[in-house]
Amino acid sequence: MQSDSRHGRPGFTRLFPFVLTAVAIAMAAILLLTAVAQTPNSTPNDARGVIRLRVRVKTGETTKGLSRKRFFLIPGTLEQNKALIQTIEQASIVTRDCYYRSIGGSDALIKWLQEGDCESVYCREIEPRDLEGNTAVPEFQRALVAGEKELPSSDLARKWLTVNLPENVREGFYKTRQRELQRLIKQAEDSARAKVLSVMTDTKGTAFFTELPIGTYVISNLLPIESSNTSILWNCEIEVKPGDLAHEKPFLISNVRDRTVKCVGKEKPLPVCEPTKNSGR
């Protein structure tokens, strides 16, 4: 105050330019930060790649594409997903035949599923021959009788037959597998802190993962597939590079080693089913 009065200027006037400068700098900084935050991210992180997966399985003398099987893409390397892979490899498998035996499924039902290589009753149409004669499936026959009581025709009761099947026959196997699958997916996503993608192979055993961020992934089927008398589990590392269309060179995976095969699955004999007291009805 003393000096102010000595120079003939009040304190506020002397400090005013500095206050204004400070405010202006602060405002400029805010504007700059806002502008930076709104600038679209055009870093190379935007680059995307594609994996063309081709799965071939050798059973006996025959090698063929593995159709309609789901494969998963887990972000990270094999090393980074070590704990998950150990869990996958140590998980006990409930095979299709063992599941249906465990719920007391009839021999005819198991044969019907085996004949069509089906996982569930939704796999193919239930036909008149599945309802009468030596090949009749008792579970289907009971469902038909129930359906005929509430639906206008026997034909509709057959076509809508699954609506009268018990839950464990209808979707028990699917749900059992889904529970295990969801547990593994959750573990994978928690570990990778990213979403696990999945695709299903077509009849030729081909599937595409598209729009993939560049990086390293593990391709896995998480739950082993059943092939003849063995189960096969794949856990392989793959690198996705920028602009990788992969349309010419598929990532070939198989259960047998070959120079073109990039990933060989681990094969194990299927577990033997424990017969249940109700089986064979």
Partner: peptide, 17 residues
Amino acid sequence: HDKHQDAIARWRRPSVQ
């Protein structure tokens, strides 16, 4: 679509022989 694809999935294809 994904769930329905899973539900109608076949276990494996029969031999082509």
